[in-house]
Amino acid sequence: DEVTIHLGDKTIRVDGLDKELLEILKELARRGADEEELRKEIERWER
């Protein structure tokens, strides 16, 4: 499953996201997290 996250004018595509992680990323994005913060969160989950 590829998920596309839209952040204002930026788009991040991620393969096979965990549903819980997806919810966390959506919440972070709502709070104004930037792409770098979201990537760090994704990397934390992948470990």
Rank of each mutant, 00 (worst) to 15 (best):
H6G: 08
V14W: 04
L17A: 09
E43Y: 01
E35M: 11
I12E: 02
D1G: 14
W45M: 07
E46I: 07
E23F: 04
K10W: 03
K26T: 10
E27G: 07
E23R: 11
I12A: 02
L25N: 00
L22P: 00
G32S: 02
R30N: 12
D1H: 12
L17C: 06
I42D: 00
R44G: 11
A33T: 04
E41R: 05
K40F: 05
E20S: 12
A29P: 00
E46R: 03
D9T: 08
D18I: 06
V14G: 08
V14E: 03
E23L: 09
E41S: 05
D1Y: 07
E35C: 04
K10M: 14
W45G: 03
L7A: 09
L22R: 10
E20R: 14
G32A: 01
L28G: 01
G32W: 01
L7W: 06
T11M: 04
L21G: 01
A29V: 13
R30A: 15
K10G: 12
R44P: 00
G32N: 03
L28K: 05
R30L: 12
V14Q: 05
R13P: 08
L17P: 03
E43L: 05
I24Q: 05
A29D: 04
E46F: 08
E20D: 12
G32Y: 01
L17T: 08
D34C: 03
L7S: 04
E37P: 00
V3Q: 14
T4Y: 08
D18G: 10
L7H: 06
G8N: 08
R31V: 09
K10E: 07
E37T: 15
E23W: 03
K19N: 09
V14T: 09
G8I: 05
E23P: 01
E46W: 04
K40R: 13
K10C: 05
K26H: 13
D18Y: 06
L25S: 00
T11C: 03
K26I: 15
T4Q: 12
E23D: 13
L17H: 07
R44V: 03
L7I: 14
G16T: 11
E35F: 12
L25E: 00
I24D: 01
A33C: 03
E41G: 01
H6E: 13
W45H: 11
T4C: 13
R31S: 14
E46A: 05
R31I: 10
E36M: 12
K26M: 14
I24G: 01
E41C: 06
R30G: 09
L21H: 02
I5S: 05
K19P: 15
K10D: 08
I42P: 00
G32I: 01
I12R: 01
A29L: 14
I5L: 03
K19V: 10
E41Q: 09
E36A: 13
E37Q: 12
R30Y: 05
E37H: 06
D1E: 11
R44I: 08
V3L: 12
L21K: 03
T4V: 15
D18T: 12
K10S: 12
L7E: 03
E36W: 08
D9K: 06
D9E: 14
W45Y: 06
T4R: 09
I5N: 04
L7P: 06
E23K: 10
G8P: 08
K19E: 13
L28D: 00
D9G: 10
L38R: 01
D34M: 07
